[in-house]
Protein backbone atom coordinates (compact mmCIF):
# COMPACT_ATOMS: atom_id res chain seq x y z
CA UNK A 1 0.00 0.00 0.00
CA UNK A 2 2.71 2.39 0.98
CA UNK A 3 4.76 1.57 -2.10
CA UNK A 4 1.76 2.06 -4.32
CA UNK A 5 1.02 5.38 -2.70
CA UNK A 6 4.58 6.56 -3.21
CA UNK A 7 4.54 5.41 -6.79
CA UNK A 8 1.32 7.23 -7.49
CA UNK A 9 2.71 10.32 -5.86
CA UNK A 10 5.57 10.40 -8.32
CA UNK A 11 3.26 11.53 -11.05
CA UNK A 12 0.34 12.51 -8.92
CA UNK A 13 -2.97 10.84 -9.37
CA UNK A 14 -4.24 12.14 -12.67
CA UNK A 15 -7.96 12.59 -12.92
CA UNK A 16 -8.56 13.86 -16.41
CA UNK A 17 -12.23 14.61 -15.91
CA UNK A 18 -11.46 16.90 -13.01
CA UNK A 19 -8.67 18.59 -14.89
CA UNK A 20 -6.10 17.39 -12.39
CA UNK A 21 -3.47 15.96 -14.62
CA UNK A 22 0.23 16.32 -14.26
CA UNK A 23 2.43 16.60 -17.30
CA UNK A 24 5.25 18.70 -18.72
CA UNK A 25 4.46 21.18 -16.02
CA UNK A 26 0.74 21.27 -16.57
CA UNK A 27 -1.04 21.48 -13.24
CA UNK A 28 2.13 20.40 -11.51
CA UNK A 29 0.95 21.47 -8.09
CA UNK A 30 -2.55 21.65 -6.60
CA UNK A 31 -1.87 25.25 -5.56
CA UNK A 32 -1.72 26.52 -9.11
CA UNK A 33 -3.89 24.00 -10.94
CA UNK A 34 -6.63 25.75 -12.87
CA UNK A 35 -5.10 29.18 -12.25
CA UNK A 36 -3.71 31.73 -14.66
CA UNK A 37 -0.32 31.29 -13.00
CA UNK A 38 0.05 27.67 -14.11
CA UNK A 39 2.89 27.47 -16.61
CA UNK A 40 2.71 24.36 -18.78
CA UNK A 41 5.82 24.58 -20.95
CA UNK A 42 8.73 26.79 -21.95
CA UNK A 43 10.42 26.71 -25.35
CA UNK A 44 13.49 28.62 -26.50
CA UNK A 45 14.85 28.33 -30.02
CA UNK A 46 16.56 30.28 -32.75
CA UNK A 47 14.04 31.95 -35.02
CA UNK A 48 13.38 29.77 -38.08
CA UNK A 49 12.96 32.92 -40.16
CA UNK A 50 15.58 35.30 -38.73
CA UNK A 51 18.74 33.58 -37.49
CA UNK A 52 19.79 36.63 -35.48
CA UNK A 53 16.58 36.38 -33.43
CA UNK A 54 15.60 34.08 -30.56
CA UNK A 55 12.06 32.84 -29.95
CA UNK A 56 10.63 32.26 -26.49
CA UNK A 57 7.33 30.49 -25.88
CA UNK A 58 5.70 30.47 -22.46
CA UNK A 59 2.50 28.43 -22.34
CA UNK A 60 -0.02 28.60 -19.52
CA UNK A 61 -3.39 27.15 -18.47
CA UNK A 62 -3.07 23.76 -20.13
CA UNK A 63 -5.56 21.08 -21.06
CA UNK A 64 -8.15 23.51 -22.34
CA UNK A 65 -10.80 21.73 -24.34
CA UNK A 66 -12.05 23.57 -27.44
CA UNK A 67 -15.28 24.24 -25.55
CA UNK A 68 -13.37 25.85 -22.67
CA UNK A 69 -10.89 27.82 -24.76
CA UNK A 70 -13.16 30.70 -25.72
CA UNK A 71 -13.66 31.63 -22.09
CA UNK A 72 -9.99 31.36 -21.15
CA UNK A 73 -8.15 34.64 -20.69
CA UNK A 74 -5.00 36.18 -19.32
CA UNK A 75 -5.39 37.70 -15.89
CA UNK A 76 -4.76 41.39 -15.13
CA UNK A 77 -3.20 40.26 -11.83
CA UNK A 78 -0.76 37.77 -13.34
CA UNK A 79 2.73 38.44 -14.69
CA UNK A 80 4.40 35.86 -16.90
CA UNK A 81 8.12 36.54 -16.72
CA UNK A 82 11.03 35.17 -18.72
CA UNK A 83 14.19 35.13 -16.62
CA UNK A 84 17.58 35.27 -18.34
CA UNK A 85 20.89 34.43 -16.69
CA UNK A 86 23.74 35.39 -19.00
CA UNK A 87 26.72 34.69 -16.72
CA UNK A 88 26.03 31.16 -15.52
CA UNK A 89 25.12 31.77 -11.87
CA UNK A 90 21.42 30.87 -12.27
CA UNK A 91 20.42 34.34 -11.09
CA UNK A 92 18.45 36.48 -13.53
CA UNK A 93 20.46 39.28 -15.14
CA UNK A 94 17.59 40.28 -17.40
CA UNK A 95 13.85 39.76 -17.33
CA UNK A 96 11.11 40.01 -19.93
CA UNK A 97 7.82 40.74 -18.21
CA UNK A 98 4.42 40.10 -19.79
CA UNK A 99 1.52 41.81 -18.05
CA UNK A 100 -2.06 42.22 -19.11
CA UNK A 101 -4.71 44.87 -19.04
CA UNK A 102 -8.15 44.27 -20.45
CA UNK A 103 -7.21 42.14 -23.40
CA UNK A 104 -3.84 43.68 -24.22
CA UNK A 105 -0.45 42.19 -23.35
CA UNK A 106 2.31 44.66 -22.49
CA UNK A 107 5.87 43.35 -22.71
CA UNK A 108 8.69 44.94 -20.71
CA UNK A 109 12.34 44.15 -21.37
CA UNK A 110 14.71 42.43 -21.73
CA UNK A 111 15.69 44.72 -18.87
CA UNK A 112 17.87 44.40 -15.79
CA UNK A 113 15.53 43.94 -12.83
CA UNK A 114 15.83 46.33 -9.89
CA UNK A 115 15.93 43.26 -7.64
CA UNK A 116 16.23 39.53 -8.29
CA UNK A 117 14.21 36.69 -6.82
CA UNK A 118 10.60 35.87 -6.24
CA UNK A 119 9.20 39.39 -6.02
CA UNK A 120 9.10 41.72 -8.99
CA UNK A 121 7.88 45.11 -10.03
CA UNK A 122 7.25 46.01 -13.65
CA UNK A 123 10.53 47.42 -14.93
CA UNK A 124 11.05 50.41 -17.21
CA UNK A 125 8.84 51.13 -20.15
CA UNK A 126 7.01 48.75 -22.41
CA UNK A 127 8.98 47.32 -25.35
CA UNK A 128 5.92 46.24 -27.29
CA UNK A 129 2.24 45.56 -26.74
CA UNK A 130 -0.24 43.37 -28.58
CA UNK A 131 -3.93 42.64 -28.35
CA UNK A 132 -4.72 39.16 -27.06
CA UNK A 133 -5.98 37.15 -30.03
CA UNK A 134 -9.59 36.04 -29.43
CA UNK A 135 -10.36 32.33 -29.82
CA UNK A 136 -11.12 31.39 -33.40
CA UNK A 137 -9.62 34.52 -34.93
CA UNK A 138 -6.48 35.09 -36.98
CA UNK A 139 -3.37 35.57 -34.88
CA UNK A 140 -2.78 39.21 -33.90
CA UNK A 141 0.95 39.89 -34.22
CA UNK A 142 2.75 43.01 -33.08
CA UNK A 143 6.05 43.76 -34.77
CA UNK A 144 8.50 46.61 -34.33
CA UNK A 145 12.29 46.86 -34.48
CA UNK A 146 12.70 43.08 -35.04
CA UNK A 147 10.61 42.45 -31.91
CA UNK A 148 7.50 40.31 -32.38
CA UNK A 149 4.82 39.47 -29.86
CA UNK A 150 1.75 37.24 -29.72
CA UNK A 151 -0.63 36.26 -26.92
CA UNK A 152 -3.66 34.03 -27.16
CA UNK A 153 -4.98 30.48 -27.44
CA UNK A 154 -2.95 27.93 -29.43
CA UNK A 155 -2.80 24.18 -29.81
CA UNK A 156 -0.69 22.75 -26.98
CA UNK A 157 2.57 21.79 -28.72
CA UNK A 158 3.42 19.30 -25.97
CA UNK A 159 2.98 15.59 -26.73
CA UNK A 160 3.26 12.64 -24.38
CA UNK A 161 1.44 9.38 -23.69
CA UNK A 162 0.98 10.42 -20.11
CA UNK A 163 -1.82 7.95 -19.44
CA UNK A 164 0.40 4.99 -20.24
CA UNK A 165 3.26 6.45 -18.21
CA UNK A 166 0.93 6.68 -15.24
CA UNK A 167 0.01 3.01 -15.68
CA UNK A 168 3.68 2.09 -15.74
CA UNK A 169 4.38 4.08 -12.61
CA UNK A 170 1.30 2.58 -10.95
CA UNK A 171 2.50 -0.92 -11.80
CA UNK A 172 -0.45 -1.80 -14.01
CA UNK A 173 1.64 -1.76 -17.21
CA UNK A 174 5.24 -2.67 -17.90
CA UNK A 175 5.94 -0.74 -21.09
CA UNK A 176 4.66 1.89 -23.50
CA UNK A 177 2.32 0.98 -26.34
CA UNK A 178 3.32 1.17 -29.99
CA UNK A 179 2.02 3.47 -31.23
CA UNK A 180 1.39 5.53 -28.13
CA UNK A 181 -1.53 7.86 -27.60
CA UNK A 182 -0.90 11.61 -27.15
CA UNK A 183 -2.74 12.56 -23.97
CA UNK A 184 -2.60 16.24 -25.06
CA UNK A 185 -4.19 15.65 -28.43
CA UNK A 186 -6.94 18.15 -29.12
CA UNK A 187 -6.18 20.45 -26.19
CA UNK A 188 -5.16 24.10 -26.11
CA UNK A 189 -3.04 26.43 -24.01
CA UNK A 190 -2.95 30.17 -23.47
CA UNK A 191 0.30 30.99 -25.18
CA UNK A 192 2.79 33.84 -25.17
CA UNK A 193 5.26 33.91 -28.06
CA UNK A 194 8.05 36.49 -28.20
CA UNK A 195 10.79 36.90 -30.76
CA UNK A 196 13.57 39.46 -30.49
CA UNK A 197 17.21 39.96 -31.44
CA UNK A 198 19.68 37.67 -29.66
CA UNK A 199 21.79 40.75 -29.01
CA UNK A 200 19.27 41.78 -26.34
CA UNK A 201 20.16 38.68 -24.28
CA UNK A 202 23.56 40.06 -23.27
CA UNK A 203 25.23 36.71 -23.84
CA UNK A 204 29.03 36.68 -23.68
CA UNK A 205 29.68 32.92 -23.46
CA UNK A 206 27.55 31.73 -26.36
CA UNK A 207 24.71 30.64 -24.12
CA UNK A 208 22.18 31.79 -21.57
CA UNK A 209 20.08 30.00 -18.96
CA UNK A 210 16.38 30.81 -19.02
CA UNK A 211 13.27 29.94 -17.05
CA UNK A 212 9.73 31.20 -16.82
CA UNK A 213 8.00 32.46 -13.71
CA UNK A 214 4.33 33.17 -13.15
CA UNK A 215 3.81 35.84 -10.56
CA UNK A 216 0.65 37.13 -8.94
CA UNK A 217 -0.01 40.70 -7.89
CA UNK A 218 0.12 40.93 -4.10
Amino acid sequence: MKTKKILLTILGIGIVAAGILFAADHADSPTITGKTTDITDVYAFQSPTTSTNMVFVMNTQGLLTPAATGAASFDNNTMIELNIDNNGDNVEDLVVQCVFNNGTMYVYGPVKPSSTGSKSIVEGTSSISVGVTPYGQTAVIASQNSYLAFAGPRDDPFFFDLDQYKKIIAGTATSFNSPGNDTFKGTNVMSIVLEFPKSLLGATTGKVNVWAEAKRKI
Binding site: I6, D25, D28, Y106, V210, W211
Partner: peptide, 26 residues
Protein backbone atom coordinates in the same frame (compact mmCIF):
# COMPACT_ATOMS: atom_id res chain seq x y z
CA UNK B 1 2.76 52.37 -17.14
CA UNK B 2 -0.51 50.84 -16.07
CA UNK B 3 1.35 48.52 -13.76
CA UNK B 4 3.38 50.94 -11.63
CA UNK B 5 3.19 50.53 -7.88
CA UNK B 6 2.39 46.83 -7.84
CA UNK B 7 4.50 43.91 -6.65
CA UNK B 8 4.20 40.45 -8.16
CA UNK B 9 5.22 37.24 -6.39
CA UNK B 10 6.14 33.86 -7.83
CA UNK B 11 3.53 31.07 -7.78
CA UNK B 12 4.93 28.83 -10.51
CA UNK B 13 8.16 28.49 -12.43
CA UNK B 14 9.67 26.01 -14.83
CA UNK B 15 12.32 25.51 -17.46
CA UNK B 16 12.95 21.89 -18.46
CA UNK B 17 9.83 19.87 -19.15
CA UNK B 18 8.30 17.47 -16.63
CA UNK B 19 10.91 17.90 -13.91
CA UNK B 20 8.55 18.85 -11.10
CA UNK B 21 6.11 16.25 -12.32
CA UNK B 22 8.54 13.36 -12.36
CA UNK B 23 11.01 14.09 -9.60
CA UNK B 24 9.13 15.79 -6.80
CA UNK B 25 6.81 14.27 -4.25
CA UNK B 26 3.52 16.10 -3.74
Amino acid sequence: NLFAGFTYQTEDQMARPAINTVFNAA
